[in-house]
Amino acid sequence: MSDLLEARSVSRSFGGLHVTRDVNFKLTTGDRVALIGPNGAGKTTLVNLITGDIAPSEGQFFMGGDEITGLSIPDRVRRGLVRTFQTTRLFANLTVADNIALAIMQRKRITRRFFSSSTELPEVRAEWSEILSHLGLDRLAYRKVVELAYGQQRLIELAIGLALHPKVLLLDEPAAGVPHDEAPRILEAINRLPSDIAVLMIEHDMDLVFKFAKRVLVLAAGRLIFEGSPDQVTADHEVRRAYLGSYADARRPT
């Protein structure tokens, strides 16, 4: 088991506001970790710190033993650190196929080609059509992203993540805003992720967390207050107080 991603005493403050305080964690091969915490706990800030969108005030990040703290966003992506967004950020005016093809082509380093017609390159095409049929989106390949329903856009967000062949995948509330009957499809797609990559998922929907995670990190007021298996989390008194509230009581076997 090697450490794919490690955060070492990472802190971040905006002015006097400490949004992230002394966070330490490790993700290893095959990890399925959920990051939970109440609203405003700094979950998305933590993801932004990991991806390099904002720089930590203190502390370092490592990937496979190399420090990545000073690297730019694209450099981290090239090392296999990939995220999805809480609110979908897609190339809205391009087709679904183009969205995924761009990710594939970027991974294969062929977006510097100037004169071949892009989406229909055979090696690229084979890959995006496979990803799309896996997600049940094949019929939408040539539709513009703006024309699609929100749940479908969430799946495309995931598809782009997959197309980049990540080593570490950060999912920022992948099911947020997805109609309830479509949520299983998201979970299904997540469960089919390659087993050797590490996945860190931020999620509010505890059902999804329990179905997905083998390990849970709990963040409250910028600090990691708990780490353990899903069952330990619901049993822990402090976590219950900080976050789970009545939900934990509801789940307790009677």
Partner: peptide
């Protein structure tokens, strides 16, 4: 071309473009 398509992607959402590397 792939280059031209990527430029259109950057126009649509440059943060997303950064996030695919």
């Amino acid at each position: 071309s792939p280059f031209g398509l990527m430029c259109r992607g950057i126009k649509d959402d440059d943060l997303r473009a950064k996030m695919i590397g």
